[in-house]
Design a protein around this nucleic acid. Structure first.
Length: 433
RNA sequence: GUGAGUGUAGCACAAUGGUGGUGCACCAGAUUGUGGAUCUGGGCGUUGUGGGUUCGAGUCCCAUCACUCACCCCA
């Protein structure tokens, strides 16, 4: 169908884009407060980058990537997540050489070819941060604090921070074997999905919602019990840091992250009212081996990504959102219309948003449109005014109007708008609530 | 990839197998130069699409497409 968007992608219409910009504004300020700078990496990368970083056998790489061969025969993929590209840029531009820590954030579209449903799209957007070069748990705490503060600034209620530690490569390997043995012993009481998972992704069985599996894994070995002393100390420090900042969290030893590169600290921001389905609105963790794995120097890293569409679903409703023109110009007759055009142009060049009716119509009609546009003032120009050389300036709220000479109109409006714009309107003439 | 549900006007919804309506929105007029209220008038909609059953299908059947929800997976 010519007039139909691709499955799983969405238009952000003018009514909605206000919400997006509000979110982006809050996010940019916050990340700046926490010392992150923006990075913009390409939407396409070499396919191999994602295969290496996310894990070749992960669902994302195996069946969800938009991967194609371009005209020159290169294997290209539309990014399914943001970390890989950032890490690639970090290594490619040798950012590790000039500073000890690199703290960046990004926001933009990601692509995964899944079956769409609530909070899950094929083109979706993530806002994420990455901090590279620091292995100390203090950075984990900073990152978590930023995440929690973001939800607080956005006034989003009903979320819980869940944290876990997956250990490092060494202690997780030992744990995986122990868990696999345990699950193999219970194989008959697991759901078909989990029977498969024992081989492919045993950790996932701990996260299964099936009652049988919950019961069967009730006394399964937990990763936290298998942490080596360094990983355990790291996790303890993170918890201590969160406590010091008064950040509430839930230790969730069964929490599993989907991407292969996570180590040690992992976390999710969970919407408590949605049990099960797409309740993770933000998630992240440490990835201390990733930089090295894709060919950079051994460098620890940690980051998170927020699902923008999921977060938007939780945002409290903003009130008035359409941009409000400050001045509406109602002109009757050809000569007046020409003056109206010039007046609008002059106002706009002064940074005063002006709107007018493009089609001829009676004054009543134009007043109606002026009213609906939400304009604070309306300039009324007709035959009489043109001959008199003075038009009517009407305050739409008080309904008071006065005669203003045509050549003084711009100055008069500037004067009034200056007083008006100090309150609820921001620099774009857009009102948020 | 698996399963279920839903497709009727711009939007939200009606219509025992028998001429497809209502509300909101929109446009015009009442008010030939003054806005939010009120009143009056204004819609030939390929009933998602294609087949089938029937004298007759928005309604029943099949297929297909789209959307939605859940599983899987994940932000």
């Amino acid at each position: 169908m010519l007039t139909q968007a691709i499955k799983g992608v969405k238009d952000v219409l003018p009514e909605d884009s206000v919400k997006w910009r509000h979110l982006e504004g809050v996010v940019r300020k916050l990340f700046s407060d926490y010392g992150f700078s923006e990075i913009r990496t390409p939407i396409i990368e070499h396919t191999i980058l994602f295969a290496r970083s996310i894990g070749a056998t992960s669902d994302i790489v195996e069946k969800e990537m938009y991967a194609f061969k371009d005209q020159g025969g290169d294997e290209i993929t539309l990014r399914p997540e943001g970390t890989a590209g950032v890490v690639r840029a970090y290594v490619e531009h040798k950012l590790f050489a000039s500073r000890s820590v690199t703290k960046v954030y990004y926001m933009g579209p990601m692509f995964r070819r899944e079956r769409p449903q609530a909070g899950r799209l094929r083109q979706f957007h993530q806002i994420g941060v990455e901090a590279l070069g620091v292995s100390e748990p203090g950075i984990d705490v900073d990152i978590l604090a930023a995440l929690v503060e973001l939800f607080s600034r956005l006034k989003v209620q009903g979320v819980e921070l869940h944290i876990n530690s997956l250990g490092c490569r060494d202690c997780r390997a030992a744990y995986k074997i122990a868990l696999k043995n345990f699950l193999t012993g219970k194989i008959d009481s697991l759901c078909p999905d989990c029977q498969r998972r024992v081989e492919t992704n045993p950790l996932r069985a701990l996260d299964c919602k099936s009652e049988h599996c919950e019961a069967a894994t009730a006394d399964a070995p937990m990763m936290l019990e298998y942490l080596d002393s360094d990983c355990r100390a790291h996790f303890e420090s993170v918890k201590q840091g969160l406590d010091d900042l008064g950040i509430r969290y839930v230790i969730n030893p069964r929490m599993v992250r989907g991407l292969d590169y996570y180590t040690r600290t992992t976390f999710e921001m969970i919407a408590v009212d949605k049990k099960g389905a797409q309740n993770a609105v933000a998630a992240g963790g440490r990835y201390d081996s990733l930089v090295e794995e894709i060919g950079g120097p051994p460098t620890p890293g940690i980051g998170f990504a927020i699902g923008v569409e999921r977060l938007l679903l939780m945002l409290p409703e903003a009130g008035d959102s359409a941009p409000l023109p400050k001045v509406y110009i109602a002109a009757i007759g050809g000569e007046a219309a020409r003056f109206g055009q010039k007046l609008a142009d002059a106002l706009r060049k002064c940074g005063i948003s002006a709107e007018r009716d493009y089609s001829p119509g009676g004054l009543r009609n134009q007043m109606k449109k002026a009213d609906r546009s939400g304009a604070a003032y309306t300039v009324i120009i007709g035959e009489d005014e043109m001959t008199k050389g003075a038009a009517i300036l009407r305050d739409m709220k008080t309904r008071e109007q006065s005669e203003v000479k045509l050549d003084e109109m711009v100055e008069e409006i500037k004067k009034r708008v200056a007083a008006f714009s100090t309150d609820a309107n921001n620099e774009h003439g857009t009102r948020f609530l």
